[in-house]
Design a protein around this nucleic acid. Structure first.
Length: 447
DNA sequence: GCATGATCATGC
DNA sequence: GCATGATCATGC
């Protein structure tokens, strides 16, 4: 398998997040049979080898080039464990390339070093360690690319130069992992005489060592990447950074191939039920690539991006108002506006997916998309509706919410599975479910 | 023909 | 089982 660029590699690798290899490989060339009964992997690096061969379809090698040499990325897997208190920690140091004491002395310039050539971009696959479970069932938790030169550059450089200096002074046998801060030189192999190797500038034999990220450092990396995942989110930033396109272009490009197609055609393409009330929404989600495995759903949710579909009639009017989440009666009464569920939804970025009535007046087609967020003035206007609604719920008035004719932006209307679909209240028993809506005339004025 | 109330398919 | 994203249905 060859990758176009780092993003291409990361996109593919990220499909592993939350899954095991056997779960992730379902649509791949590797069958579960192959995985289960194939070659036996052994030794410390077995999960890394296993993933490299069975997910990335690469032969294991010990070449000096990075594993994904076409994009200059090295693959590393890192086991995680649970602490008693339920927190997650990286289980052990991350071992990088082996140190050749002789070559190191010709490799003193950190930036030009073999170490940087090999490790400047590392595809990190964090998984939950469990020695009682076969490799194909181990769950991957987090996947990301760590750019060594963008992070902690100065400290890593100091650590590297410290190790070089020790070797230069003929003191390789005195090196200890504790000498350095982030980058360590950890031992490889036993202390037995036969596994000791020669060093330049000294007659003393020294233990074989490899560069590693010390356990504390790889733990910090893990924590950093978990936080970034939570903020990944900055889907927008990531897209700009990764593919030098902006969010709007990115989304537009996703939809471009389908513009002009009828709902009927799209249903066939995406295997959607045309009778479903949310058929247009279902199509839109599939165009964007949402499915059970694809984590873009996470990114959209975390970034607060909402996808809403709109049907436009031949006369340009919009068919229906736009609904939001159910109102939770026991919660809204204690909310303040800026922290309220409705406010949070309104300050989202919206992708409006606009379907237009076909010219023959039969059915709709996907016309265009529009990325929108609500102007502050209109958010202030919606606040009035929210405030009245909240007061009514507090007082127990459940049959007189703001109507579409009473506010230019928003109103409140029922939303349940039926009129006997009820929700609990604070002191007024069970009541019919309602939600906030944006008025269709208001939407029309915005697109 | 629109405002409002009622309800549906889907996915987790 | 139920929230969600939405459309359907009807009465004025």
């Amino acid at each position: 398998m060859e990758f176009k660029d780092k993003k291409d590699l990361l996109d593919y690798a990220r499909k592993l997040e939350g899954l095991s290899i056997s779960e992730a490989n379902i649509n791949n060339s590797v069958s579960e049979q192959d995985i289960k009964y194939g070659k036996n992997y052994s030794g410390k690096g077995k999960f890394g080898q296993f993933i490299e061969e069975n997910y990335f379809d690469k032969k294991n090698d010990s070449l000096s080039a990075p594993d994904f040499s076409e994009v200059g990325v090295e693959l590393k897997v890192s086991p995680l464990k649970y602490l008693k208190n339920g927190e997650i920690r990286v289980k052990e140091r991350l071992v990088l390339n082996i140190i050749s004491y002789d070559k190191l002395l010709n490799d003193k310039n950190f930036l030009d070093s073999h170490f940087i050539y090999k490790n400047k971009s590392i595809l990190l696959i964090f998984y939950f360690y469990d020695n009682k479970v076969p490799l194909y069932k181990l769950k991957v938790n987090l996947v990301d690319i760590w750019e060594l030169l963008d992070r902690d550059f100065n400290q890593i450089k100091r650590d590297y130069e410290y190790i070089v200096e020790k070797v230069e002074n003929g003191l390789a046998h005195e090196i200890s992992e504790g000498d350095t801060m982030y980058l360590g030189a950890c031992t490889k192999g036993s202390t037995q005489k036969k596994s000791m190797i020669k060093q330049p500038n000294s007659k003393q034999l020294a233990r074989r060592r490899a560069f590693c990220f010390k356990t504390s450092y790889i733990n910090t990396i893990y924590k950093t990447l978990v936080l970034e995942k939570r903020n990944r989110i900055s889907l927008e930033n990531r897209l700009i950074k990764d593919s030098s396109t902006n969010f709007e272009n990115y989304i537009n490009n996703l939809f471009k191939p389908y513009l002009g197609k009828t709902v009927h055609e799209l249903c066939l393409l995406f295997d959607c039920n045309i009778k479903s009330k949310s058929v247009n929404a279902n199509i839109a989600r599939k165009i964007i690539g949402f499915n059970k495995k694809n984590k873009t759903f996470y990114e959209f949710e975390a970034a607060g991006i909402q996808i809403k579909t709109i049907r436009v009639e031949l006369n340009g009017k919009i068919k229906e108002h736009m609904s939001f989440k159910n109102i939770y009666y026991t919660e809204i009464i204690n909310e303040i506006w800026e922290d309220s569920a409705f406010y949070e939804e309104l300050v989202s970025k919206f992708i409006f997916v606009i379907f237009k009535k076909n010219l023959n007046n039969q059915g709709y087609h996907l016309d265009h998309i529009n990325i929108w967020n609500m102007p502050q003035n209109d958010i202030d206007e919606a606040k009035k509706v929210w405030k009245i609604t909240k007061e009514n719920i507090r007082k127990g008035i459940f049959d007189k919410f703001p109507r579409a004719s009473e506010n230019i932006v928003s109103h409140v209307r029922p939303k349940g599975q039926s009129s006997s679909d009820l929700m609990e209240t604070e002191g007024f028993g069970l009541q019919k479910k309602y939600c906030f809506w944006l008025n269709k005339d208001y939407i029309k004025s915005q697109i």
